[in-house]
């Protein structure tokens, strides 16, 4: 009897271990392959009939060197950085005051407002991009930096407000009252007490916004086309259209993903919280 129990417990463990290994492989494999391609030399791609190797014949960083010597690449990286940077600035300028109010005041319908805010993001980008593009053509914001910045701000704002609100909310009311009694006005309280204490959460919101803009494709594509100003995502798409060598494609992809992976892992906690809180309510 006890032997049967032991065997079934053991087989359960083995099954479970296999499942974990399978999952880990499933997740790691594509990432590994991307990396492998980015360091592949030409002979490892154009194999002439023999199978594509799992590890390049001659691993090389030449693809990166090639990319880093391309002036166009620098141009698009700088564009992406500029757009992401200004998106962060505008989103915070607009989003932080709103988060402050939502986090510190018991305004009526606060909960529904926050849920509604997150629900805005359920509206398909591919549907809202058409009217935004048409509108930007009318106001001549098409093909401009600030047009994309405004659009990315639109995408980021709900997240900024949501994360920002949860950064302001837990600050003890006593601190605010203490400052008030000590003679501070509302602005001073915000600037000297609340804002410094909300900085960790707001940093998360800023990084999130930066990443969102950095790897955003749809709005950038519709608002900039493949025209004068290009971002890193558009550069990648452009290369894709001209049947590029796979190793170069992979190299650009690695450059695009690298900051996102690093920061996402750093921000894990915030990201998970954001996803689940938006979902369950």
């Amino acid at each position: 009897m006890s032997n049967i129990v032991k065997i079934s417990a053991l087989s359960r463990k083995v099954f479970w271990l296999c499942a974990v290994i399978f999952t880990v492989l499933l997740i790691i494999a594509p990432v590994f392959l991307l990396f492998k391609y980015s360091i592949s030399d030409a002979s490892s791609i154009n194999t002439g009939g023999s199978p594509v190797p799992l590890w390049p014949y001659n691993p090389t960083f030449r693809n990166f060197l090639y990319l880093f010597s391309d002036n166009q690449f620098y141009g698009v990286v700088i564009n992406s950085l500029l757009i992401a940077f200004f998106t962060v600035i505008v989103s915070l300028l607009i989003g932080v005051p709103a988060s402050y109010v939502l986090g510190r005041y018991q305004i009526p319908l606060r909960k529904p407002l926050l849920v509604g805010l997150i629900s805005v993001r359920l509206f398909p980008d591919i549907a809202s991009v058409i009217p935004v593009a048409e509108f930007f053509i009318t106001i001549e914001a098409h093909n401009t930096y600030w047009g994309v910045v405004l659009a990315h701000t639109l995408l980021a704002l709900p997240y900024v407000i949501f994360i920002g609100t949860s950064a302001f909310e837990p600050i003890p009311r006593d601190l605010e009252h203490q400052a008030m009694v000590m003679g501070a006005n509302r602005f001073q309280i915000f600037l000297k007490i609340l804002f410094p204490l909300a900085i960790p959460g707001l940093t998360a919101a800023a990084i999130y916004t930066f990443l969102l803009s950095w790897d955003e494709f749809i709005f950038a594509y519709f608002l900039l086309g493949l025209g004068r100003i290009s971002t890193l995502t558009l550069y990648l798409k452009q290369k894709l259209a001209y049947a590029p060598p796979q190793n170069l494609l992979a190299t650009i992809s690695v450059c695009l993903s690298f900051p996102v992976i690093i920061f996402s892992l750093l921000l894990q906690k915030h990201m998970s919280a954001g996803i689940t809180s938006g979902a369950v309510k």
Binding site: P172, D174, L175, H177, Q178, A179, M180, V181, M182, G183, A184, N185, K192, I193, L197
Partner: peptide
């Protein structure tokens, strides 16, 4: 409150962390 010449110590002390 800020124009009152009054100071207060809260139960939590409310020190700015």
């Amino acid at each position: 409150p800020r124009e009152r010449r009054i100071a207060m110590v809260f139960q939590s002390y409310a020190l700015f962390p």
